[in-house]
Structures are given as C-alpha cells and as structure tokens.
Deep mutational scan, measured.
Amino acid sequence: MAEQVALSRTQVCGILREELFQGDAFHQSDTHIFIIMGASGDLAKKKIYPTIWWLFRDGLLPENTFIVGYARSRLTVADIRKQSEPFFKATPEEKLKLEDFFARNSYVAGQYDDAASYQRLNSHMNALHLGSQANRLFYLALPPTVYEAVTKNIHESCMSQIGWNRIIVEKPFGRDLQSSDRLSNHISSLFREDQIYRIDHYLGKEMVQNLMVLRFANRIFGPIWNRDNIACVILTFKEPFGTEGRGGYFDEFGIIRDVMQNHLLQMLCLVAMEKPASTNSDDVRDEKVKVLKCISEVQANNVVLGQYVGNPDGEGEATKGYLDDPTVPRGSTTATFAAVVLYVENERWDGVPFILRCGKALNERKAEVRLQFHDVAGDIFHQQCKRNELVIRVQPNEAVYTKMMTKKPGMFFNPEESELDLTYGNRYKNVKLPDAYERLILDVFCGSQMHFVRSDELREAWRIFTPLLHQIELEKPKPIPYIYGSRGPTEADELMKRVGFQYEGTYKWVNP
C-alpha cells in the first residue's frame, strides 16, 4: 500500500466541504435556525453545542446559521458558553472563530407547556436576519415526558411559513410498544414523516454505516452471507464503567431499553437485511423493517440478565456495585447486563442465532459485530482449526478484520490463527472521521433520513421486546451478580454456547 501524504486539518475539512456542497440537498446560502429545546441540560452542553461548534469551526454548516437555545432556566448566552465550552476542545488559535460562533447564538427562556412562551420564541426567531423565511431545525434534547406539549406548541407557534421545518427526537422513544405508539401517533398528527428525525446516534458511527458497503459492494461476501456458512452472529456493546452516581436515570430504563432495543437491534438489521433497491432512505429502511418483521418476540429462556457488584480487589469506582450508587433505588432489580438470542425467521437466516450482548462495568470498552462461520467440513488438521470470524469493530479503534487459519512457519503443516486486517487509523491517516452527532446533524440539514429511525421500524423493535420488558417488570427477577471489570455473568457464556457459538479464547485482536 502506497504511503499517504499527511494533510493538514484545513485540507481534510476542505475535502469534506467539497463532498457536502456538491450535493443538491445542502442549501449552503439559505438562512437556517437550529433550535435546541432543553438548552440547559446535560445532553445540550456535552453533545449538541459542542457538535454545532465543530461543524461551524470546520465550515460545514450553511453560511447563515443561527443557534437558539430554549429552556425553562433563566440563562444568558454567557451562561450557555460557560457550561458548554469546556466540552468544545477549542484551541487558543480558534479564539476569534469561537467569538464568531457565540455571536450567532441567542437564548430564550420559557415554559414547555405555555403557548405564550412559544409565541415569544417565534418572535425572537423572526427578528433574526431573514428569520421569518429561514429553515428551522428543532432538536428535542428533553425528557420524553414533555415531548407531547413541546411538539404541539412548536407546531402551533414556531413553524417557518416559507422555509422547511424538521424536528429531531432523542431516544428513548417511549418505554414499550404502547407508549411508543402513543408518542408516534401524537407526533405524526403534527408533522409529516419526512419532517421527523428520530435519532439513534449509533447509526451515525462510521463502521455501522460501513456495514452496507461491506455487504453490498464486495462480491466475495454475497455468496457466504447466509445460514449455510454463518453459524452465529454476535452483536456486542461493552462499557468498562458503571453508573457513577447517575444511576437514578438509568434505573428508569435499564440496559435493554438503553442499548439493546435500539443500538444493537439497528446493527442487527444492517447485518441481516436484503440488498435495498438503492441507497435512498426509504429503500434502506424498507429492508430493515422486513428483517424486524421476521423476528419473533424474545423468549425468556433465551435471556440472561445481570447486575454488577463491587470488586473487592478493585480501586475507586470498581469497588462499588450498582446498588451502592446513592441515586439507585434500594434493592433495585434493574439489569445492567443483558444477553438475548433472537432468530430472523426467513430463508437466508433460518436457524442462525443472533446474540445481542450489552452491559456496564465490564472488562473493556468495545462495540462490534462478529460473524462466526461454520467449521470446515472434512477436517484434515486433527481438530487444530478454529472457526473463521469476520469482525466489524465499531469502537474504539474502528477496524474490519477476518480471523482465519494460516500455516505456522516451519517444517510442518501446523495451522495457527491469524488475521486479515483493515484498521482505519492506519489505512486512512488523512481522513477526519466525523463524530456520530456531527454526521447525523449534517444529515438533518441535508434532509437525508437514511440513518434515522422510521415509525414502522420503531414499532417493530418495541413489538419484539415489550413482552419481555413487561414480564421483567411484573416478576422482578433478581439479576445474576457479576463482578465489576469482569466479562459479565458466566451464564451468558453458557447461553451463547448452547445456541452454537464457540468461544476459543486463544486469539485476541490487537490494534496495530
């Protein structure tokens, strides 16, 4: 592979701008107003304001973009700056750019259920340069409990009458099928589907988006991507930290609602779906819905739930269990780990287990898709061969690698495990991989909904998990304890083995 010439960040961002501006969906010269509902909250200060700053800094926003914060707290732009700027990672050389960014910011205080507050917000936006005809993007960085009041008031008082209007809704989209349907029906009564952007930030990850290209742009994968060759698929999300004093919020939802029903299920769809007619948003989402419709409700015998306990040999936070978090209700049975087996009941995947695993306070930070292939028929190497695996590593250190057998150097035919490896950090030294939120917010500006969740996708996802969630809430089974920093409950490994996964433990990928 030829040595790549190092590029400056300015040059890299210039390439990104060229890609972005050559499309006809990006209205570079139009006025846009980006409204952050819930501007005083954690999500706004840690993710949304920093993301908008990065896009502005790199010249990736339309030229005439204004940012308006809205929340109940009586704040000023200076207050917003004070709480969000520490997350910007701005350099001293960017000081003038930073001043320009905050000059485009404003803030309006108001209630979430008060019509007069929204009329005041609308008047404020109209007073901005060309504000009355601007395109408006409303980001709901809010708890779902206020979605209905907020969307109703936005629709009645704050819509642009000339430009387009788009609304970005953060997960969780309800707690179960019934609450999700209620919320979807409410929002759909106010906005068209092409105006609604239900954001799952995992769909903005580079390697998640790469799944489609790997599958449908490489001839070698087509013939082997089926039940005849693939023994099982494992989708993993692991965090090495616990709730760390923020367990009160987590306890309301648990690990299945927080990660599995959305992030992991979306990745499953991209692995299992048929080739779409095109890369058009609805063509892709149509195929994802077909996959979900082929999955039956989760069966309790295919589920393992766990909850982390303190590690007596650990240090600091590792010595504390979930129930030691003062914000967690006493005696909570909320799971911090889950392993679930699903089956896609169609011709391509009949009988292939899709194993979804996620948890907190585990032994490493990792998100990946792992396809394990069947054993080689007619073994001539005296059971020395391990199964081939194709691994798409989402985070950290984005990579695609194939675990395969090669001859060990020497005189004899002794096979050993090795890999074919594409590590993004080595291959793409001159490429700026956008943060997931950067990519998705740019998608909203461009009107691309491919990486957002459609209402029928959402409904099918909740259909699969709601009976299990209701059973857990009714019966309150005690989750299996696992030690902070471990791989999780051993019962999860036993479940995976029972459905056909072979864990060798003899080879570990190392970032080159």
Rank of each mutant, 00 (worst) to 15 (best):
A2V: 10
E3P: 10
Q4M: 04
V5I: 06
A6I: 07
A6M: 14
A6F: 08
L7P: 05
S8V: 06
R9I: 04
T10Q: 12
C13I: 07
C13M: 04
C13Y: 10
I15Q: 08
I15G: 06
L16T: 08
L16G: 03
L16H: 11
L16M: 07
R17A: 11
E18V: 03
E19G: 07
E19P: 07
L20E: 05
F21A: 10
A25M: 10
A25L: 05
F26V: 12
S29C: 13
D30Y: 08
T31Q: 04
I33L: 11
I35G: 04
I36Y: 00
I36K: 01
G38A: 02
A39K: 00
S40Q: 06
G41C: 11
D42N: 11
L43A: 05
A44K: 00
K46A: 10
K46P: 00
I48K: 00
Y49A: 01
Y49H: 01
P50W: 00
P50L: 00
T51F: 07
I52W: 02
I52K: 00
W53F: 04
W53M: 00
W53A: 02
F56Q: 02
R57C: 03
D58I: 07
D58L: 10
P62W: 03
P62N: 05
E63M: 07
E63L: 08
N64H: 08
T65Y: 06
F66Q: 10
Y70N: 02
Y70G: 01
A71I: 01
A71L: 00
R72I: 10
S73K: 05
R74M: 06
R74L: 07
L75Y: 10
L75C: 04
V77G: 03
A78E: 11
K82V: 08
Q83A: 13
Q83P: 02
E85W: 04
E85H: 03
E85R: 03
F87Q: 03
F87N: 13
F88H: 02
K89W: 05
T91W: 04
P92N: 09
L96K: 13
L96V: 08
L96P: 07
L98Y: 03
E99G: 09
D100G: 05
D100K: 10
F102Y: 11
A103N: 11
A103L: 07
N105Q: 06
Y107I: 04
V108A: 02
A109I: 05
A109E: 06
G110L: 00
Q111K: 08
Q111W: 13
Y112H: 04
D113V: 03
D114E: 08
D114F: 03
A115R: 07
A116R: 09
A116L: 12
S117I: 01
Y118W: 09
Q119W: 09
N122M: 08
H124S: 04
H124W: 10
N126D: 10
A127Q: 13
H129K: 12
H129R: 10
L130T: 12
G131W: 05
G131S: 11
Q133H: 14
N135I: 02
R136P: 01
F138P: 00
F138N: 01
Y139M: 05
L140E: 00
A141E: 02
A141V: 04
L142P: 13
T145V: 14
V146P: 10
E148A: 11
E148I: 12
E148Y: 07
E148G: 13
A149C: 11
V150W: 00
T151W: 05
T151R: 00
K152C: 12
K152T: 09
N153E: 07
I154S: 01
H155Y: 08
S157N: 07
M159R: 14
M159W: 08
G163A: 06
G163M: 02
G163S: 03
W164G: 03
N165D: 04
N165F: 03
I167G: 02
I167R: 00
I167P: 00
I168F: 02
I168P: 02
V169P: 00
E170K: 09
E170A: 11
E170G: 12
P172L: 07
G174K: 02
G174P: 03
G174R: 06
G174Y: 07
D176S: 09
D176P: 05
D176H: 07
L177T: 09
L177G: 08
S179F: 06
S179K: 09
D181E: 08
D181L: 11
R182I: 14
L183Q: 11
I187D: 06
S189Y: 05
S189D: 12
S189R: 10
L190T: 09
L190C: 08
F191Q: 00
F191I: 02
R192V: 07
R192M: 10
E193H: 02
D194C: 05
Q195N: 12
R198Y: 03
I199S: 06
H201T: 12
L203K: 10
V208T: 15
L211A: 07
M212V: 04
M212A: 03
M212P: 02
M212L: 06
M212G: 02
V213T: 15
R215A: 01
F216G: 03
A217S: 09
A217V: 01
R219S: 08
P223T: 14
P223N: 15
P223V: 02
I224H: 05
W225K: 01
W225D: 00
N229G: 09
A231K: 09
C232V: 03
C232L: 03
V233G: 02
I234E: 15
L235W: 00
L235Y: 10
L235V: 07
L235N: 00
T236E: 14
F237N: 05
E239A: 04
E239K: 03
P240H: 07
G242P: 10
T243V: 14
G245M: 08
R246S: 13
G247F: 10
G248L: 12
Y249M: 12
F250Q: 04
D251T: 05
F253S: 09
F253I: 12
G254E: 02
I255R: 01
I256T: 04
R257P: 13
R257H: 08
